[in-house]
Amino acid sequence: MRVVLAEDLFLLRDGMIRLLEAYGFEIAAAVGDGPALVSALIEQRPDVAVVDVRMPPTFTDEGLRAVLEARQTVPGLPVLVLSQYVEQLYASELLADGAGAIGYLLKDRVFDSDSFVDAVRRVAGGGTVMDPEVISKLLARGARKEPLGELTDREREVLGLMAEGRSNAAIAERLVVTERAIAKHTSNIFMKLGLPESADDNRRVLAVLAYLKA
């Protein structure tokens, strides 16, 4: 699997390259600033990109803007965004195009390399992975707001795990119930949120989007 890596701090870039290569990824390009990232994404068309938010030249949300720009040219280009902090505002901007294949994680999630690499693979496969910190903030306040107010507590919990990018099987394991029970919850969620019949993956993205926008 070919990866484009964007990280301006040498130490972290080096560490990430080692980690990803150890898990069998091929580093197509490793860049250190926004403009270089945009061109690397468009020229290399990697299977997935791992991108730091804050980079030169402005040292603000350079990486985020580069990703949004590149995804306008290459819709649905899988990108996992890493940051020292997660913001719901940025999460909803990343998800706004509804194309999925987006991850948004805190940098320290890299520490757990197995689940980090798993997240990279899920994003590469078109999935959506949101950091538990984004999800927990949403759970704290989402209860009152439309249209999520119509969901039961259990359904909200399932939606939260879905937003973390977990499959029905993984959610079932986490909540200690059968996978069929989870499938029932998810179809209820899709129905209550008024999401049209389509490929399951895309509906999951739209559900998460509705969740973030609430």
Partner: peptide
């Protein structure tokens, strides 16, 4: 806006 999103209030 980010503050508003993070707030427990609407």
């Amino acid at each position: 806006r980010a503050l508003a999103l993070d707030s427990a209030l609407d």
